[in-house]
């Protein structure tokens, strides 16, 4: 039998061309990239030690020495925001990553096996999802005590149900495809099928969800810090800085505004990345 000819290899840039068609993804990446760079290079970027107190400059307004002014202890607000990015982004990334890994693992197993395994997991998951995220975070941190590790743990736990749900749903859809039966008839183990063949095919959706959840995780961290359940002071975190500014809102309103702006920019950036990725990975979208 003569070898059938193949079409030329398709250019594998359809994802790229879709991703760059709308500027949203690019803007989002730039915004988030700037914040990450700020966090990474904090020791070199920040003009002052974020915890250094200078009582003579208490609540000083913006000046050439202190671009964004100083707080009630006379600490430089710009430096605190730059250093605060480290904690806030770190907590966000680590807790989201933990939530993704655990949630996807559970979700794929639940969707693949079905039956009573699925019923138990889905039921437990629905219970967890019925708690508002912030309440869940408050309860966990209140029980475990405020520390950086407990904060990450609490946020990760609130993230798990969302990823269980999305991974389970995508796995259910994948399982209907013949290739899963083909794998079984070739004698592959369940582990190999779940994590070698189903998982790579549902990662699109998981990644989109993760970028949106990163924003939620960072917001949860700032909210918990704002109500005093974040990393203990004097550690600079964005939520903590907002809180300190809030206490002096009448004397120096800009103290709370600057860190809020930083939070806002990261939120916008991450949501733009999420939306952009969703559009770029949607095969139904025109190339």
């Amino acid at each position: 039998m003569s070898a059938a000819s193949l079409p030329a290899p398709r250019a594998r840039n359809s994802f790229l061309s879709r991703a760059t068609r709308s500027p949203a993804l690019l803007i989002g990446i730039v915004l988030v990239g700037l914040c990450v760079a700020m966090a990474l290079f904090a020791p070199w970027l920040s003009p002052y030690d974020p915890d250094e107190q200078d009582v003579l400059n208490r609540l000083a307004g913006a000046s050439r020495e202190h671009w964004l002014g100083a707080d009630s202890f006379g600490r430089d607000v710009l430096s605190r925001i730059i250093w605060g990015a480290q904690i806030s982004l770190f907590v966000g990334f680590v807790s989201t990553l933990a939530g993704v890994v655990i949630g996807v693992l559970i979700g794929v197993v639940s969707g693949y096996y079905g039956g009573w395994v699925d019923r138990v997991i889905s039921g437990a998951n629905d219970v967890l999802m019925s708690f508002p995220q912030i309440i869940m975070g408050i309860i966990l941190v209140a029980v475990l005590g405020p520390s950086l590790f407990n904060l990450i743990l609490a946020i990760a736990i609130t993230a798990v149900p969302a990823f269980v749900r999305i991974a389970r749903g995508s796995t259910l859809a994948m399982k209907e495809r013949d290739f899963v039966d083909a794998c079984r008839s070739l004698g592959y183990s369940d582990m190999r099928i779940m994590f070698g063949h189903i998982l790579p095919n549902i990662m699109d959706e998981v990644v989109v969800m993760a970028s949106l959840w990163l924003a939620t995780a960072i917001r949860t961290e700032t909210t918990l810090a704002f109500i005093g359940l974040g990393a203990p002071p004097p550690t600079a975190t964005w939520g903590g800085i907002v809180r300190e500014g809030f206490e002096n809102l009448l004397d120096s309103p800009m103290l709370a505004v600057w860190p809020s702006l930083a939070i806002l920019l990261v939120m916008i950036g991450l949501n733009m990345i999420g939306d952009g990725l969703r559009d770029a990975t949607d095969p139904r979208a025109p190339t």
């Binding site: 013949d178 083909a182 790579p200």
Partner: peptide
């Protein structure tokens, strides 16, 4: 034992589009 048996029985599916892992 089933794995050994499956080595000797294989299946070809109707829809060639869904019978392949698209990422492999």
């Amino acid at each position: 034992e089933l794995r050994a048996l499956r080595r000797r029985m294989q299946i070809v599916f109707q829809d060639p589009a869904s019978a392949r892992d698209p990422r492999q």
